[in-house]
Write a protein that binds this DNA or RNA. Structure first.
Lengths: 264, 264
DNA sequence: GGCACTATGTCCACAATATAGACATCGCCT
DNA sequence: AGGCGATGTCTATATTGTGGACATAGTGCC
């Protein structure tokens, strides 16, 4: 349980103080779409300049970061991309889920997502697009909040009551749209409803004009390990379609859970 | 040049000794297809057990690594995807391109690559394998040079004359094989020919026995943002196949460019 | 069933490491 | 010129990480 605790609190493993600093710098660089130069970097992390120089030099030496000669910026390097690619390729959940997700996409012709929990967020680990051109601007590796998305709510709805309360206690229910649940008790009720019917519904709670239906995926021990969702713009969503898609999503998640139990 | 030196020698940045240990552990985990448990891990890295425990705990705390309860193995975690997301997805180029690349692979049954430019190199951001066992040893995240590869030459051929000259001026035309272009003027002529016919050809210029055909992908403003290629061993390459594949590659790149214009 | 051996996990005194302030240098604006 | 901010480097000091040693659980052998 100690691992979980550390993960949640932003970590405080004994003997990892410096490593956490390296990660802070790496995250800063990762978050800058166009890279950062030393000046910006020293401003964006809370360490003295001398330290930042050393941290960056180490990251460069490990090829996690590359230094662009042209404009002096630091960006993510090939080593990190390699590691990320491996993560993606070797994820059992993703591999198992893929064929089901493709079927789900074919049946709905909408964007299908697969996400896993990480630090009180959901991280997308796969995405299959529909044929429609109007689409969401999510991407693999992108992260979204638990309380305002169908994958997040689906995952939450799969937790035991104790764990749910524990996690809810740590969340900040930030408002994204008018419809976002910002009251813990109302959210809890919504989640319990989701648990009962087997799917969570995001009714423009994260982004205006986007509705999503999501269901949790469980490992053999019954812990929710991820969630899938189908997303669509409001104008393609109506009661009939909702019912059809919700039942497809629920069934697909169940199938993935079953397949997972056999394989792992 | 000092950076390069460090990278090659396994690194020796002052004040990064512990970080390098973290990376060693991370790489070990990354290299194990099915993950490693503590026992295997302590054997595969040259650190005392106490230290390994701490290193792993820190990696888990940062979510670079996850601990599977069921079998006790450690595997790469979602944080890596999160970090690489912005770079890796490259404005959804990868997502958009994927289905086209799969079709291209199906049509050719050869390895298909998608690469984007980065620091005067091309970095592979996707790879789809053919069914043949003889394949290239490239990997996602790997980088190759501009002047000796079809993706590199394809990207270069998509540049305006001014930009092309600018970039060519910065390149060192390192020789990889007998056939590598090492003379800037001859390379420039080859690139202009490539631009006219819509695809670049790597005729064993990067690796002996490997030939590749590549075409650039453009964003809406006409800037080349990446390139795709089909690679094959010499013995599977003949004039007929060349013509067929070249036209497929060209058409696929055009399709991706078109789709990109609609979405972005 | 008992014993030996190996694997697993934790602790802490010490040594190696990272830190952050101070110094040196450069370039830009007034 | 001269002042100011940004950039890069150095090093004494304190914090951090280290790894051997201990405690415990698990496994195989006789």
């Amino acid at each position: 349980m100690q691992d979980d605790e550390n993960a949640r609190t932003g970590n405080q493993v004994q003997g990892a103080a410096s490593f956490s600093k390296f990660m802070t710098v790496l995250q800063s660089i990762a978050d800058a779409p166009r890279g950062l130069d030393i000046g910006q970097l020293t401003k964006s992390v809370p360490f003295p300049r001398g330290t930042v120089y050393r941290l960056v030099a180490a990251l460069v030496a490990e090829q996690l970061v590359v230094h662009h000669r042209e404009d002096g910026t630091y960006r993510l390097g090939p080593r990190l991309l390699q590691l990320a690619a491996k993560t993606w390729e070797s994820s059992d959940l993703r591999t198992v889920a893929r064929e089901f997700l493709v079927s789900l996409r074919d049946a709905t012709d909408e964007v299908v997502h697969l996400a896993v929990p990480s630090s009180n967020r959901m991280v997308y680990i796969d995405k299959i697009e529909g044929s429609n051109t109007v689409q969401m601007k999510t991407s693999i590796g992108g992260q979204v909040e638990l309380h305002s998305t169908s994958v997040g709510k689906a995952w939450l709805s799969g937790l035991s009551d104790d764990r749910l309360n524990e996690v809810l206690g740590q969340l900040t229910l930030r408002r994204h749209t008018e419809k976002t649940y910002t009251d813990p008790d109302r959210l809890r009720k919504e989640l319990i409803k989701s648990r009962e019917r087997g799917y969570a519904f995001d009714d423009e709670e994260n982004e205006p004009d986007i509705r999503c239906v999501g269901s949790p995926i469980f490992d053999r021990s019954g812990e929710p390990v991820g969630a899938i969702s189908v997303s669509m713009p409001v104008y393609r969503h109506d009661p009939e379609r909702h019912a059809k898609i919700a039942s497809l999503v629920f069934k697909t998640a169940k199938d993935i859970t079953a397949k997972l139990a056999v394989i792992i």
